[in-house]
Amino acid sequence: MTTVFFRYFSFAATAALLAACSSTPTTTSSGGKPSKYYLDDGPMKGITQEMVDALPEPVPKREPLNKFTQRPYTVLGKTFTPMTKLEPFKQRGKGSWYGTRYHGKKGSIGEPYDMLKLTAAHPTLPLPSYARVTNLENGKSVVVRLNDRGPFLHDRIIDLSYAAAMRLGYANRGSAELEVELLLP
C-alpha cells in the first residue's frame, strides 16, 4: 500500500511541477529585472539556427510505453486521460515551447529534459512515442520524440523543446498554430 501511495504521490507531484511548462512571452519581472519569457524560461544563449538545423531528427521506433504515464491524472483542476496504445492521432491548435527553466530536470518518464534535442511534451499521447509537428503558419515540420507531459496552461496542445521550436520558426514568439500527428513505427 505504501509503494502504491508513493508512486501515486510521485506522479501527482511531477504533474503539478510540470503545470508551469509553457514558455509564453510575457512582461513578468523576475528579481526586479524585466523578462519577456514566462517565469524567465527563455532560450539558451549562443545557440544558432545553423546549430539547430544540423540536429538529426529522431527516427521513430517501437519503445515500451511507460506504464506510469498511462493513468488518468488531474492538473490545475483539469483531468487528462492518456492514450494507452499507439494509434492514428492528429490534432491542431496552439503550441508553445519550454527552455532553460527545465533544462536538465527530469520529465514524466524520468529522462532529463534537454532543450537542444528534438523532443516534446503532450498531455495525452503515449510516452515515449514520436510525432511530426508542423507549423501551420509557415509549413515547416519536424519529427520529435514525446517524452514528457504538458502543457497545462492556456489550452495549449503541445510543448516543444527549444530546439524543435527554433526548427519550426516560432521560438522568438513563444507559440504558433501547429498540427501534431502521431507517427506509428
Rank of each mutant, 00 (worst) to 15 (best):
Y170A: 05
M1A: 13
E87D: 09
F9E: 13
A19S: 14
A164F: 00
A13Y: 11
P128H: 06
L76P: 08
G99K: 05
T124Y: 00
S10Q: 06
T27Q: 06
L65R: 01
P88H: 10
H122I: 02
G99F: 01
A131H: 03
A120L: 03
P112C: 07
G110A: 11
G104T: 05
H122Y: 00
P112W: 07
T3K: 04
V180M: 05
I158C: 08
E87F: 10
G110S: 10
M51Q: 15
A19P: 02
L183I: 02
A171E: 04
D159I: 12
R173S: 05
S161F: 07
G104E: 04
A13I: 11
A163R: 02
H122F: 00
A121H: 01
Y130Q: 02
R132N: 04
P151R: 09
V143M: 09
E179H: 04
Y8S: 12
D53F: 15
V59I: 13
L39A: 07
E137N: 10
V75Y: 02
E57S: 12
L136N: 08
T74L: 07
G32V: 04
L86S: 05
Y8N: 10
L168E: 03
Y73S: 01
Y170I: 05
L76S: 14
K61P: 03
R62F: 06
D114A: 06
P151E: 13
F6N: 13
S108T: 09
H154D: 15
T69I: 08
G42I: 10
L182W: 02
K85A: 15
L160R: 08
P72A: 01
M51E: 14
A54M: 13
R149K: 14
R167T: 09
M51A: 15
K33F: 05
I109K: 01
M166C: 11
R173W: 10
K45P: 09
V133H: 00
K45F: 12
L184K: 04
V144G: 01
R149Q: 14
T81K: 12
M1D: 14
E50N: 15
G46E: 13
P25Y: 14
E111I: 13
T28G: 12
Y38V: 03
D53M: 15
L127M: 00
H154F: 11
G42P: 04
A15V: 14
K94R: 13
Y113M: 07
T3R: 01
L86V: 07
G110H: 01
T14I: 13
Y130A: 07
S141I: 08
T69F: 02
M166P: 03
V133L: 03
F11A: 15
L39I: 07
T24N: 15
K85S: 15
A163P: 02
T2L: 09
E111N: 14
A16C: 08
P123R: 04
K61L: 13
K78C: 09
P72R: 01
Y130R: 00
M166W: 00
